[in-house]
């Protein structure tokens, strides 16, 4: 929870992604409480409603769940869910962006695959 906010993306998306990243890195463990909207609001000097929107996004996806009167907790299996979601996103966004830029630069598919192989070694 110590990343910096940027201007390039909606704040609430950044909040939810930050929590996801912390879960992936096991900074936040499953069945553990996450910071409250007010704590997040104060930490990042953002409106609590915005922080709540980010948290609710994760609740809708089943990554966080609410314990009445206590707060928000990381759901069991949250890490798995985030991993598969990020993999899908990687395929859809990152790879298409890569292909688009490759197309603009006139790099063929075969060349691209070779470049990836070379770089990965």
């Amino acid at each position: 929870m110590n990343e910096q906010l940027t201007e390039n993306k909606s704040i609430y998306l950044q909040i939810s992604e930050m929590i996801e990243t912390d879960i992936l890195r096991e900074i936040l463990l499953e069945e553990e409480q996450v910071p409250s909207t007010n704590e997040l609001a104060k930490q990042y000097t953002i409106n609590p409603a915005t922080a709540a929107k980010g948290i609710n996004l994760l609740v809708d996806e089943g990554i966080l769940y609410k314990k009445r009167g206590i707060g928000m907790f990381v759901a069991a299996g949250a890490r798995e869910k985030i991993l598969s979601k990020r993999r899908r996103a990687f395929l859809e966004t990152e790879l298409s962006r890569l292909l688009e830029e490759a197309g603009r630069l006139g790099i063929t598919k075969e060349e691209l695959i070779d470049m990836i192989r070379e770089k990965a070694q």
């Binding site: 007010n38 609001a41 104060k42 000097t45 409106n47 609590p48």
Partner: peptide
């Protein structure tokens, strides 16, 4: 300025 906004959010919360 940053402190002011934090105080404001604290009071608001």
């Amino acid at each position: 300025r940053e402190n002011f906004y934090k105080l404001l959010l604290e009071e608001y919360a």
